[in-house]
Write a protein that binds this DNA or RNA. Structure first.
Lengths: 241, 241
DNA sequence: GCGAATTTGTGCGTATGTATT
DNA sequence: TAATACATACGCACAAATTCG
């Protein structure tokens, strides 16, 4: 290569370009993206450099590569990817994938101080707040309060009626954002009378409190959520590396 | 390269050789290992292939590479690596790194049915069991029951007095094993009178139950541990990708 | 303070292996 | 079987970081 005046390695620049094509919807799940040789030629880089960019796309779950078939944009609306930030399992070792939700309230407002901290948002930024109760196998399982940074989901600002039963992973994907990681703080507490009523348990029942922030692949916080969860014989699973 | 009669890719074979040198203690933390060109020559592979093997060693935290300096074997006895499977923080956001432990009992025996399941051990395999109470800032913070597969830690069988206050990560390293990942199941429960006494809390106090299995880099379970933890204003943190 | 030597990081180009269609 | 696409491997050149005289 010639002299590198740019701050970024070439394969990282290629990564950005490819990621942009996926975020913009130019490449969608379904058909394979162009093959490596063609892409390398198009970007004017060597096949090895392009492969390194694809390695990164794969690691960040933007694409999936299959030898002999091609490279495919991943659909984050699959069960595997959608529920990967949901670590609660019921007593039968089944992941709690809420089928039904009851929305208590929803609205857009300016971020509070706490929301600004959790979401790394500037003062005055808009957030979409949703309060709901999730059911699992016909039983209310959790009460949730979630806040989403409106500005980071492209097009959300202009949506008249955002879905109140959204699941954050596919919801973000629909707005050009793939999620990369999340952290969750876990404590336990006693159900207040209000929450007890919503979850149909006795007041004082012990619940798990899950305080979660979900980040985009590029590292921005997208959703902050607090869930009060009635484990009822189930458990939470954490995986560490 | 010539025909590939082996099942494994060349860079994976090289990885195994390098990993073996670290496990055996031939290469230790401290001085850098030989440079990439020399290693490639020694193994009779191209620099690119050797680099791919090193990439894997780095990803699995066996080595650390620094441009201009060299490649170094990682010491898992550092705080960062030792406590990476400890996700409990106190009310001041400080990780709970137990300074003091009181051992209640320790001994070697044949694995029970449950231990065989958790540790993927054969019937009759030996396990080292330790019961202890951990302190944090002068307060008892958790009661633990741990079982270790004796056969998977080299030399442990012949140790007359295994340390009762071991920390699993450096302890495994001392026996030629680096740990790769862990999973932890979390529930809450009320303290029994016995546990309440040990943790100096009232009977019935809510505790977090942490049921953890730690795996070696090669994927074998090494330790199964149950901890009953008095959060006392603290919290558990899970990170997801 | 500077330049040479050393070591890893990035990039190029090519050939061949292997899985899929 | 043939064509296609990703996977592995080779070898070389130069960039960037670090160390040391």
């Amino acid at each position: 290569m010639s002299i590198n005046l740019t701050r970024q390695a070439l394969y990282l620049q290629v990564y950005d370009s490819l990621a942009q094509r996926i975020a913009s919807g130019m490449w969608k799940p379904g058909p394979p993206i162009p093959n490596e040789v063609d892409l390398a030629r198009e970007f004017g880089v060597s096949p090895g450099t392009l492969r390194k960019a694809l390695d990164l796309l794969e690691e960040r779950r933007l694409v999936e590569r299959r030898q002999g078939r091609g490279t495919f944009v991943l659909d984050h609306a699959t069960e595997e990817l959608t529920f990967r930030f949901v670590n609660v399992f019921d007593a039968n070792d089944e992941r709690i994938v809420s089928t039904q939700t009851t929305v208590l309230s929803q609205g857009i407002g300016e971020a509070t101080q706490v929301e600004c901290n959790q979401l790394e948002a500037a003062k005055g930024e808009k957030v979409l707040r949703t309060r709901r109760v999730r059911d699992h196998r016909g039983r209310p399982i959790s009460y949730e309060e979630a806040s989403i940074t409106v500005g980071r989901l492209s097009g959300l600002e202009r949506e008249p009626n955002p879905p109140s039963d959204y699941l954050i992973v596919p919801f973000a994907q629909q707005h050009g954002i793939r999620l990369g990681r999340a952290t969750e703080k876990i404590t336990h507490l006693s159900a207040s009378s209000e929450v007890a009523r919503l979850l149909r348990v006795k007041r004082g029942t012990q619940l798990l409190k899950l305080d979660r922030v979900v980040y985009s692949i590029s590292g921005e916080p997208v959703e902050w959520r607090i869930a009060l969860c009635n484990l009822a014989g189930g458990y939470y699973v954490a995986a560490m590396r």
